[in-house]
Design a protein around this nucleic acid. Structure first.
Lengths: 207, 207
DNA sequence: TTTGTTGTGTGACTATCGTCACTTTTTACA
DNA sequence: TGTAAAAAGTGACGATAGTCACACAACAAA
């Protein structure tokens, strides 16, 4: 069911019981699963593909927080659900994804009845928290060129392909910077022979 | 027992049952409750005073993430405990604080036995997550002068006094910048009559 | 009172990044 | 095949903030 399991993974028995409670959907790239200020009615669990999660600020600027990988869920949506809140984030499908949609009611019920589910949630919190800390760290102490390079590397690892299909504008949005900046820095990376550039395409040669 | 309850608060009955399980300690300012890479054996719950939580990076640079206020706990420590991990953060006493020290074993037991505790933990996660998102946002999209001003305002609100006792270096550390930068920006704020400067002291005149 | 330590003020310089104002290239499709 | 739209390249410039090198002020302890 889950075709790749980097890092944290959901256990088979837990997954089986979740599948009984929810429905599986296949979602195309760029589908918005959760938008800012959305009321949360479902908890999505990614079975295949990847979802990217953004923080959106008042002026519409955004920054990539982390990826939800197969075997993971969106803890923010879960929290929002538990606390009757609205989403502070935006979740968008990056690669076509199979997603298990679990109604909030079921998700909260399961906390009492299924210890494995609770454990799963906590583990996921831990992961996300640490990832957020990394974002803070990167944004405060790293230069844009390093951040860009790490973003490219992350994409390569995630998709298991060194061909990245994206535009400079998209990368800029993910880093919270301007398109020109990304273009410049990509050119520098190309000069260092770390990547090759093409239209809508970046080929990473050296990790 | 708890002398101020801004925002989220722990319920009386829950607090009572926690008091039976842990011990209360009074901690002086600058006491390090949890340091980076510490193994976590206790979950601290703040009864009075304030604790500040930092992310520390490899080069020793740090940045303030959030404050733990009375009636709150350090979720990171809790997570670390649950997941057998070491701390990614540093928690330091800002104002003298009364802290309830709860052993990890008790904290995990209580999850099964006391629904209010579980609820409390989840609420706290939500708060922290949102605060972290705010940090990311501030750091990416706000200028240093705004961030500094907001930090000062936060300190005033927290201590309920418009006299802040701190050094420029401390503020710089909290913002992840250099002392000179803080000195410069503080001077600008003084020129705008928003603050008065003194040695080890900043008086905020206008909120 | 002297002396050392800690905190603050400041000018000069630099690097990074955001912005503006384009041009050029690539591609879709009318 | 021509034309418009989308993506990318690029130079110039300015603002912000990090760094260096001090001078100076306040305080504490000897």
């Amino acid at each position: 069911m889950i075709d790749q399991l980097p890092g944290l993974q959901i256990s088979k028995p837990l997954l089986d019981s979740l599948l009984k409670e929810g429905t599986v959907k296949v979602l195309k790239p760029n589908t918005v699963i959760i938008d800012e200020n959305d009321y949360i009615r479902n908890v999505p669990i990614v079975l295949s593909g990847t979802i990217k999660v953004f923080k959106v600020d008042e002026e519409g600027r955004e920054i990539l927080l982390y990826y939800i990988k197969p075997g993971e869920s969106c803890v923010m949506s879960f929290l929002g659900a538990m606390c009757n809140g609205t989403s502070k984030i935006r979740a968008v499908v990056e690669e076509e994804s199979k997603v298990l949609i679990l109604p909030v009611t079921k998700a909260t019920e399961l906390i009492r009845s299924n210890p494995a589910w609770l454990e799963f949630i906590f583990q996921l919190y831990n992961t996300r928290f640490e990832e957020l800390l990394e974002v803070v760290n990167a944004v405060v102490f790293q230069n844009m060129d390093d951040r860009l390079w790490e973003l490219l590397r992350k994409k390569v690892t995630l998709t298991r392909s060194n061909e990245i299909t994206t535009t400079h504008q998209q990368l800029a949005d993910e880093l919270g910077t301007a398109r020109e900046v990304v273009s410049r820095l990509l050119k520098q990376l190309e000069k260092k022979n770390k990547i090759q550039l093409g239209r809508n395409r970046i080929t990473v040669s050296e990790l």
